[in-house]
C-alpha cells in the first residue's frame, strides 16, 4: 500500500510541476473551442488546430500467473505516465507518453523483487476520418497508429536478460492500430474503439502475444464540472512466447466492467478516476488478473 501512496504522491507532484508553469495563462476554455462541453480523458479529446494537452496518469494493476503453490508469481504494478499531445491540424493529433514503472513481484518461495525505472514510451498519431460538422461535431470516427518503443532498460541476470515478467518493458518495437468513434449529445457521450496490438520479438527471445482490445464507454455529465463513466472492455490475447516456446499461462480472453468519475476542478483541467474490474477471465493456463485503478489529470495549455 505504501508503494501506491508513494506513486500517487509522485503523480500529483509531477502534475503540479507540469501545471504550475502554465498557471494564469492557460488557454481559455478548450471545450469552448470545440463547441462541446464534454469532459474527455486523454486520448479521446476532440482535436482542434493548435490544441496541446499535457497529462499525468497513475495506474495500478495486479495479476498472478503460474500454478498456485508451485510456480505462481504475483505481480503488482504502479505506472506513472506523463503524456503530451498536440494537434497541428483540426484532424491530426500527435502524442507521446513516457511511463515510469514501479513493479513488485512476489514468488512462491517468499522471494520478492521491486523494480523502479522507465517503461516503454509510446508515440501515436490519431486522425479524424469523419466528423459530421467542423464545429461542435456530434459524431467522430478516428484511426490511430501507435508505436511502443523499447525505452525501458533491459535487466540482465547471470545468464543473460531476465524473463519478461521481471522486465519493465518488452524490449521490442510494437505497433498498434485502432479505429474508434465518439458520439456527443450533451449530457451524454459514448466512446468506442478497437485496438490491435502487434508486438515484435523483444527481450530474451520473447514476444508478447498479439492482442485486440475493445472498449465501449458511456458518459453522463449532468454538470459541467462532473461526469460519470461506465463501460465494458475486453481483451483477446494470444500466448506470449518466451525462449522460443509459448508460455502456457499467458493469453486468453478477459472481459471488464469499467466505471469512474471525470471532473474539471478548473478551466482546462480535467481529472479522472477510473476503476476496472475483470468479470470474465477465460485465460489460458494458470493466471488471473486483478482490478485496475487509474487516476489522471490533463491540462490544456
Amino acid at each position: 500500500m505504501h508503494r501506491a501512496v508513494f506513486i500517487i504522491s509522485a503523480a500529483l507532484a509531477v502534475f503540479v510541476a507540469a501545471v504550475l508553469p502554465f498557471a494564469g495563462r492557460a488557454r481559455a476554455c478548450a471545450t469552448c473551442a470545440v463547441g462541446d462541453p464534454t469532459l474527455n480523458v486523454m486520448g479521446v479529446e476532440q482535436p482542434f488546430a493548435g490544441r496541446t494537452r499535457i497529462a499525468t496518469e497513475v495506474r495500478h494493476f495486479s495479476e498472478t500467473s503460474g500454478v498456485q503453490g508451485e510456480t505462481s508469481v504475483a505481480s503488482s504494478e504502479q505506472r506513472l505516465s506523463l503524456s503530451l499531445s498536440h494537434s497541428p491540424t483540426p484532424r491530426l493529433t500527435l502524442a507521446l507518453r513516457v511511463p515510469l514503472v514501479l513493479r513488485h513481484l512476489a514468488f512462491e518461495n517468499l522471494a520478492t523483487e521491486t523494480v523502479v525505472g522507465p517503461g516503454d514510451a509510446t508515440v501515436r498519431a490519431r486522425y479524424v476520418l469523419y466528423r459530421d460538422r467542423t464545429f461542435a461535431p456530434s459524431r467522430l470516427i478516428w484511426a490511430h497508429l501507435g508505436l511502443e518503443m523499447p525505452t525501458a532498460p533491459i535487466r540482465q541476470g547471470p545468464g543473460g536478460p531476465l524473463s519478461l515478467e521481471r522486465q519493465l518493458g518488452t524490449g521490442s518495437w510494437d505497433t498498434s492500430m485502432a479505429i474508434g468513434g465518439s458520439y456527443f449529445a450533451n449530457p451524454y457521450s459514448v466512446h468506442g474503439s478497437a485496438l490491435l496490438f502487434l508486438p515484435t520479438r523483444g527481450t530474451a527471445d520473447s514476444r508478447v502475444g498479439t492482442h485486440l482490445r475493445t472498449t465501449l464507454v458511456g458518459q453522463l455529465q449532468p454538470w459541467s464540472f462532473l461526469g460519470f463513466r461506465l463501460g465494458l472492455d475486453a481483451r483477446f490475447e494470444a500466448a506470449t512466447v518466451e525462449n522460443g516456446a509459448e508460455d502456457p499461462s499467458s493469453g486468453g480472453i478477459v472481459g471488464y466492467i469499467t466505471g469512474g468519475l471525470i471532473g474539471s476542478p478548473a478551466t482546462d483541467i480535467v481529472t479522472w478516476l477510473n476503476f476496472t474490474m475483470p468479470v470474465i477471465q477465460a485465460l489460458n493456463g494458470e493466471q488471473s488478473e486483478g482490478w485496475q485503478l487509474v487516476l489522471g489529470a490533463a491540462l490544456d495549455v
Binding site: L100, L110, A111, T112, E113, T114, V115, V116, G117
Partner: peptide, 12 residues
C-alpha cells in the same frame, strides 16, 4: 525518467 532505476531483491 531515464535516470531513475532502483531494484530491491529479497532472495526467499
Amino acid at each position: 525518467s531515464a535516470s531513475v532505476r532502483c531494484v530491491s531483491v529479497s532472495p526467499g
